[in-house]
């Protein structure tokens, strides 16, 4: 992908990227009481990185998101999900039965759902960035 020399594009995307990242975090953590959740947040988070890669080139993006970090994050997200599910074993419940994780049933559910959505968000974001960078670097 051609590294753009356009001043306006660079400045505007520099302003926009933090806002997109912030919005992604909002969608992630506000997903319980409004529209949103891990899947959407992950995709929006990845969109910010893809915008960065489009404007500044994949080489610069690789410095922010190196391959080892992305593949680790991909696995971390799904392991967080799996770990949350497996943690309920320790309390004598079934797989992914979060009710037992907290002080009472509802608190446990809240904690479980929060962790699971976080895992979903991390994996989806890492996978989307990886996919885009794989395509972009092929062109280089």
């Amino acid at each position: 992908m051609m590294t753009s020399q356009h001043l306006i594009l660079r400045v505007v995307s520099k302003i926009l990227i933090p806002l997109i990242l912030l919005f992604a975090l909002y969608v992630q953590f506000h997903g319980e009481s409004g529209p949103g959740g891990g899947f959407q947040a992950g995709v929006i988070f990845a969109a910010a990185f893809i915008l960065y890669a489009l404007v500044f080139g994949p080489e610069n993006t690789r410095r922010v998101a190196p391959e080892w970090a992305l593949s680790t994050l991909m696995a971390t997200g799904i392991l967080l999900y799996l770990g949350t599910g497996a943690a309920s074993f320790l309390f004598g419940a079934n797989f992914l039965e979060y009710g037992v994780l907290g002080a009472d049933f509802v608190a446990g559910q809240l904690l479980g759902i929060f962790l699971v959505e976080l895992g979903v968000g991390i994996t989806v974001a890492a996978v989307m960035i990886t996919i885009y960078l794989a395509f972009a670097e092929r062109q280089g």
């Binding site: 959740g37 899947f39 992950g42 989806v124 996919i131 395509f135």
Partner: peptide
Amino acid sequence: LTAIVVAVSTSALALALIV
């Protein structure tokens, strides 16, 4: 909701195969 995200990953895989 889950199907949409899975759809984009599978079409990305298909596009990679196409490349």
